[in-house]
Amino acid sequence: MTRHRLGSRAFLLLLAAYFALPLLAAFLYSVATRWGDSALPSGYTLAHWTSVFTRPEVSGALGRSLVLSAVALAIDIVLVVPAAYWSVVRNPRIGSVVQTVAVIPFAIPWVVVGAGLQLVVKDTFPALFGSFWLLAAATAAIAFPFLYWAVENSLLAADAARLSEAAATCGAHPMTALVRVILPAIRGGIVSGSLLVVATAMNEFALAKILTGTRYETLPLWAARQFTSRTGNDPNALAVITIFTFGLLFALSALVVWLGRGRATASTMALTRTTEKG
């Protein structure tokens, strides 16, 4: 074994340790009885895992995050699928316009999107200020590109233009063609795009913090409040939620990669994007 080989092995080992250690520390915290001034906890228990989710503030926050994800996803599906479909079978210029708009949530920080929305809503639609619907719409807006890319890719892969032409030749109404022919053909794309939208909504912090704050406390907001409050915070509960959220996001990501085996690179990329901005 050459020195070169040894060096690269050591480099990878250090990198792996760097990635594993914070997770390990959080996990140990979630099963520790007491963790005072020592390198390892003095005892282990599963009590935090069973008790955290029965606390009303935690189950409430989890429920609110799930509702937010579901509503944002519903908005995105209703808006994106017809647009992507029409772009592929009828008018490609729709695609170019949507791709241009999709650069906004891709490149511009979500704090900035939140700040802009706050300014618009404050004067123009005061009734929406701080409301759940504003947060849901904003979350749907930043997450829609993931669904659009996934749906458009699967429409192109399924050759939806030819499919709908064939359906039209057989006398099917465009709506019938969409529901009976196209949708079954692109189910995979819709599912992986939806998982990305849900992952974004479950983990989204900036918009929730700016737009609704304490009025609609999602799980990331609860975690942030626990973390920053100097008094009365419960590190074990926070550790449980940390590992739980991580497990959820990782499961979603694994599912997306598994669904898009052929185009794994693109989906991995899209997914990393959802978690990066948090």
């Binding site: 990635f19 914070p22 520390a25 959080a26 973390f227 940390t242 991580f246 978690t275």
Partner: peptide, 26 residues
């Protein structure tokens, strides 16, 4: 492993980092 790490962001990462290298970290 890269996917794991890239998925571990947000408040959870902040907590884990404090638990690891904070003043009383592991």
């Amino acid at each position: 492993l890269m996917n794991v790490a890239a998925n571990f962001a947000g408040i959870g990462l902040a907590f884990a980092m404090v638990a690891l290298i904070g003043s009383t970290g592991m």
